[in-house]
Design a protein around this nucleic acid. Structure first.
Lengths: 204, 204
DNA sequence: AACAAACTTGAAAGATGGTTCATGTTTCGG
DNA sequence: CCGAAACATGAACCATCTTTCAAGTTTGTT
């Protein structure tokens, strides 16, 4: 799915090939995560993967191509993580808390994913935009469902979804990626953010 | 202030020099905004500025240096724009609405600023982080002031500030940078976001 | 076992674009 | 109006990487 369509003629056909492809993808995630797209070199990727420089082009047409493949994979992984953290039977507000908590935990454990998706804004803008638009749609749906269930206001839409998404992403940046010791735990951050959604920030 | 400290020995000493420096800065903002840091070339910057390639190095030590100078300037400009949009006499909630509205308008008119600051995450991470930490602190202060005045809950802190900042940045991305015709006006977006801060998203 | 396809290898080609520099021109105080 | 400092110029230098390629090795099938 991620690379289903015009995946050129580069898919591996043997077990060995599949192993090498995976090694390249993992190495690329590490290099792009550590150094960013432009300071990561293909030779560093192949060195980290333990394969020859030329082998890279057996699997990818270009440096851009492997980055794009990575963005697709990671975009899927983020969505997957958020979905897995949610109990669909919970209240709409509780679902949003769980989604944020799931995202914070995922980001803390996969900082390189965060960075690669962010850099896609410049290296692969279409995919970057698609990533956030997909998530935005999903949140919009959850808000609509919450409205129908009576948990939420019935007039919530895309604007509110993007506001929530922005909240989550920035809290991820600050408390998962840049975390320092005297920061509260992820649970605490998620609860405080959820409190905003519950009753706003106005005087009680 | 922006470049006060170790500004190397590159400051212009004549009127002509100051003009050339400004032309380079403006051209760089355009090129970096249009093509991103790595696809923007110094020769394109000097061409756009209408000066010779070599003149660049009369004013900046490197490509990185001009980008950093730009990030500092633009970081100041963003803060300035938000401050200018605020009426300090208004209620705490109204102040947040005005700040967001000011930011949305500024972003729409200076899309390149948005992009350059975003790319600083990779080209000039320290400045990027400083930018958001400064804004985060300012919002935290506003929330504390609002708490004292009785407009807001008294228990608001950094987490809430970053949540608000993330909201604002993502709404800027979606509705100022990626704006399309059938999107609501900035006023509408700011009001809807403010409604979240007023009473959350729960059923009325 | 034998053969074709898949895969691996690393040196070298090729391109790009940042940076330097020697030379020429302009500015501006005295 | 003179001279020194500031500024301008653009060809050439250079370092860096991406990408190619021709030659070898492994895999899997018949």
């Amino acid at each position: 799915m991620t690379q289903g369509d015009t995946r050129s003629d580069k898919q591996p056909r043997t077990e060995r090939g599949r192993r090498t492809l995976r090694k390249l993808l993992d190495a690329a995630a590490g290099e792009f995560g550590d150094h960013g797209f432009h300071d990561a070199s293909i030779s560093a990727i192949t060195a980290r993967a333990g394969v020859a420089l030329g082998s890279f082009y057996t699997y990818f047409d270009s440096k851009d191509a492997i980055f794009r493949a990575l963005v697709s994979d990671m975009s899927d992984a983020v969505k997957q993580a958020a979905r897995a953290a949610i109990d669909p039977a919970a209240s709409a507000l509780e679902i949003e808390r769980q989604a944020l908590l799931g995202f914070l935990n995922f980001a803390a454990e996969h900082k390189e994913v965060y960075r690669i998706i962010d850099e896609a804004e410049f290296v692969d803008p279409a995919n970057y935009r698609a990533h956030y638009e997909t998530i935005g749609k999903r949140i919009t749906e959850r808000l609509a469902t919450g409205g129908v269930k009576g948990d939420l206001r019935p007039d919530l839409g895309e604007v509110e979804a993007w506001a929530i998404m922005g909240m989550n992403v920035f809290l991820g940046l600050r408390y998962a990626i840049w975390a320092c010791e005297n920061d509260g735990a992820a649970e605490d951050v998620a609860s405080r953010a959820n409190r905003i959604l519950e009753r706003g920030i106005g005087r009680v």
